[in-house]
Each structure stands twice: as structure tokens, then as C-alpha cells.
Design a protein around this nucleic acid. Structure first.
Lengths: 172, 172, 172, 172
DNA sequence: TTTT
DNA sequence: TTTT
């Protein structure tokens, strides 16, 4: 349940290959950066100007696996999600904030094959129930770019890796 | 799975009380009309003009029950959904088409109590899995405006009522 | 000014080449149909089902010219706009209703060249005013598929051609 | 012109009164924070959890004046805009990044009077040109909360105030 | 810091 | 048929 609407819609290109990681639970988390840009002619100089906005997008679970499998640097993609600002500690001990888009739906826009659409959950295509949609994603075996922990359920001797461990110490 | 994006976002007021009906399966179907409007000054006459757009919105299942319970004529509401054009037969035997918004998310915007947000399925508020969101809707007993069939699971002797039976013979 | 939000976001493929027409004023009006689809596995039969939704999209003015010039049958496109239901008369004299998406923004998603983004009006890329965006569209000469009326400003002897004249007598 | 789509849609409540400032050019800039929240039941503990997301929204020019005049702490509002991440320098000389929503459209959702909808630019309500929309905003005199510079057009002796001067040295 |  |  939510009070309010928190919705982001992006169409852009990946700045690099997706980074797939695994939670102690075995769930996948995939990070990508997505570029959108706009250009205009400077009134003063008559020169064309361009500004590129870089968006940090994070996928979880099934969507993370699909993103990791099908997206590549340069891929054009539609992403729908919500804004989330995370607080983290810089090496100087200071608080930092990073805003990300937590993806709830993703769709590849390149025609080079791909996964079609993938959504966390979607509205019913067959609301009358005469045929139920199968919500399962295509599950060709993703090649994990990083090993999942071997004993994800076991209590770690060392401080448990938290979510922040999956993030660099800098916002981008 | 989808190829393409089919998304509608509306904020408007209900033209009348919701009409709740029940499928043979016992699932609820709720119809509302939603008004959005825009006004502008006529360049010629200097008069203010207003144009109201009426949207047919249909809710299914749990969302249909919530809509039927909490929405009323005049309610201001946020609706997200997708477009669907249905074909039906006029009394003259001719094909007619009606475009509706099949709601996947709804949120009341009046402060007069209400249900907060309600979505078919939503993106994870707790994607790390340390606490799972409960997707269940508030289920105060809705007062059905039309009786659900008594033996919804039983095969009907007469031709089964189809979806079109729930629609008037005119588009609005 | 508007009361309410009436917003549609589509990503889909064109069902045919755009149809460009011209108003008596000389302004372009372009119609396209856009397909979005979803597929799911039928619970009963285990068969894959697919449902395609066809959207009528109409572009006006500059956007109409860009759409007419750059879009082709099969083009993948992002369209943002609002819903508008028009009333028209069937040949039997009966009222009919057709719902269209009036596009306010369009963006080609094929990499085969194209026009980038085109919007009626967009939010400021340079809100500080140090360089003003140029809102002008690329204006290679579009090849009009239908002649504009020769004396658009002159009062017609016959009933003036209305908007409906640009529409077929059937919804799709 | 844009390559890609960068769109945010928010419905939320203001965390405080708007802060209106003026550029050297005399143009208004208004900042608000907007809360959206979601709640769920913790699977482990059975307790209700709530998470509030705070969004920094910035309005420019005419929209900034309307926001400053009509919005107040607690106001419920619809905002549409785009994401922009700004780089700024912390007091320690380190780079910091703040992500904001640059509003292009705003609509009050409280019924306590107000401004209706206000957009930077909107799609044509009357695309046929039989009556042109007036894009002018209501302009009751806003009470500036901070004086605009007295000689906005004059070249400053000191380094010209940049945009960052209008921002606090901390992200929120 | 909002709201229900 | 709504709302301001």
C-alpha cells in the first residue's frame, strides 16, 4: 500500500554492461546506468549544446536476472520504476545520498532478439480468468558475473555483507 | 509478457457512483466514468471555453471491490491502467467499439477517509526481503449492488453470461 | 489549464504508413495506428495466447509533419499524449464514438536514422536561461500525401469541411 | 530535442512551505520537498512498516511563482517533471550529487481553492485552431519570500551568482 | 519535514 | 455525469 505516487519512466541507453550481484539469500541485484540526453541551440552563441543525464537503475530478483542476461552496454531500454534515495557513509564518515530508480518493469527496445517485456507484476491481460497469464520470465540460464555466496543461509563469521557493500563509495 | 507499453495515467472526478457487478466466477467488475477537463480562452471571442473528457474505467477483482466500496460520485481519484478497445454488437447488428481503461492501480485523492492506494500488484517496497509487503487489500464487507450468482461454479443451463452482458448497448 | 490529468504513454509499432492530411489552415494532421501486445499461457489449454491492442494516434501541426516524414509501417515509436473521444455519425445516421490518443510528444526508437525526439512543447532543458533551447523541428520538405485546399482562407459555399471529413466512416 | 525519455510522476504531500528565490534575471525558482510513502506488514514480526521517500522538486519561472503562491506545507500535489542530478561542492571540497525533479507540470489536489493545473507548456486542447488556449497563469501578486536582486540586468562586479548559490550546502 |  |  502506498500513499502517493512515485513513478519514473525512462527510455535510454546503457552506459555499460549490467553489474549483477547476489544477495546472501541468493536473490540477484543488477545495477545499470542509463543515459538520457537533450540538446538545444545556445541562444547566445548559436552553438548546439547537449546535456546527458545519467540514471542509476537497480533491478531486483527475477528482473535482475533478465537485465543481466539480455542488456548490454549501449542497449536501448524502457524502464519503469520508483525513486529511492539511499543514505550511505563516505570514507570520511560523512553521510552521502544516492538516488536510484528501483525498476518494476523493463523492456528492451533493440531488435536484436531479447526478452520482450519483463515486469515484477503486471496487470491482468485476461482479467476474466478464461486463461491465466503466466507470469514466469524466460529462464535461460543466466551466466552470473559474480558468484553467489556458497552458503547463503549460513550465518557469516565476518560482519554480514549489507546492501551497501554492493555499492561503490562514490555516487557514480 | 508484453511487447510494447500501453499505459494510461488519469487524475479526475467520478461522474457517478461506481457500478459493481459480479462475474459467474464470483469476481467483481466495477465500472466508473472519470472526468478530466481543460479550459482555455477562445482567441476569437475572448470567451472561456471548457472541454471535458469522459473516461470509462473498469476495475477487476480485488481492485473492483475497493473501488466499489470507497469511490463515490465526485470522488477525485488517481488511476493507472492500460487501454483496451472492446468490440460489441449494436442492436442493429453492427459492430461497435468502446475504448476503456483497465485499471491496474487506483488511489483516492480525497481526504475523506478511504482506502489509500490499491494496486493489482506493485513493485516491492522491501526488495531485500527483510520484511515482505502484505498485498492484501482492506476487506471491510463491500455491499454488492448486484447479487453474485448463487452457484458461480456450476455450469449454466442457459448460455453462460459473457462479459458483454455487463455492458449497456450504448458506449456511454 | 486543466482540471485533472489525462496522460497516455505508448511504445509500439506502426500498423501502416502514416496518413498525412492538411487542414484548410494548412496545418498538418497525421494519423497512425500503433500496436501494443501482450502474450500469456492459457491456464486451461497450456497454449500461448496473444492479444494485440491497436491504438489510433493523431498528430497535429509540426509533430504531424515529423511523424509523416520519419515514421513508416513497422516503426517502433514512443508516443505520449492524451485521450480524446470523438463523436461522429455513421452512414446510418447513428452516433459513433472513437477514442484516439492526441500525441504531444513522439520519439522514434528505431536506430534507422530518424528525428530523435519531437514534442509539441517541452520542459526547459536550460531553465536558467543561459542558452535557450531551439524548439524548431527538422524541416526537410515533407511530401504531402493529400493536397491542401487551394483557398484555405476563403469562406466555402458548401458546408465547410470539418475535422470529421478527415476520418473514415469506420473506427479503424 | 531529446534522445530518450526522462519522466517522473509524483503525487505526494509537501513537507514544508515552498521556498521561492529569484534569479538575477528576475525569474523565480521554487523548491519544495514532497513525500510519498508506502507501508507493508513485516513478514517476520507482523508489524506494520512504513517507508517515506522525500523528493526534492524544483520549479522554474511561471511555475515557480504559482507553486510559491498556492502550495503550502501539507498540500497534496501532482507533479510531472524530469530527473536532474546536480553536482556541488561540500564544505570539505568534495563533490556531492543531488538528484532533483525539475517540474514541468503541477496540479494541486486539495480542494482548498488553488490554481488548478499549471504546466510549462502543454499539448493543444484545441488543435484545430478554432480557439487558442491561453497559456497565461493566474498572476495574483506573489509575496516574494526573498527579495529579487535590485538590478538584475546589471553586470555584477563580483563573480556572478551561479545556480548553486541558491542551494544549501547539504542535500536535504 | 508530509499525509492517513 | 464530475470538478473548480
Amino acid at each position: 500500500m502506498a500513499r502517493g505516487i512515485n513513478k519514473v519512466i525512462l527510455v535510454g541507453n546503457l552506459g555499460g554492461d549490467p553489474e549483477v550481484r547476489y544477495m546472501p539469500s541468493g536473490n540477484a541485484v543488477t545495477n545499470v546506468t542509463l543515459a538520457t540526453s537533450e540538446s538545444w541551440k545556445d541562444k547566445q552563441t548559436g552553438q548546439m549544446q547537449e546535456r546527458t543525464e545519467w540514471h542509476r537503475v537497480v533491478f531486483f530478483n527475477r528482473l535482475a536476472e533478465i537485465a543481466g542476461e539480455y542488456l548490454r552496454k549501449g542497449s536501448k531500454v524502457y524502464v519503469e520504476g520508483s525513486l529511492r534515495t539511499r543514505k550511505w557513509q563516505g570514507q570520511d564518515g560523512q553521510d552521502r545520498y544516492t538516488t536510484e530508480i528501483v525498476a518494476s518493469e523493463m523492456q528492451m527496445l533493440d531488435s536484436r532478439g531479447g526478452a520482450g517485456d519483463a515486469g515484477g507484476y503486471q496487470s491482468q491481460p485476461d482479467p476474466m480468468g478464461y486463461g491465466q497469464p503466466q507470469q514466469q520470465a524466460p529462464r535461460r540460464q543466466p551466466a552470473p558475473q559474480q558468484q553467489a555466496p556458497q552458503q547463503p543461509q549460513q550465518a557469516p563469521q565476518q560482519p554480514a555483507p549489507g546492501f551497501d557493500d554492493f555499492d561503490d563509495d562514490i555516487p557514480f
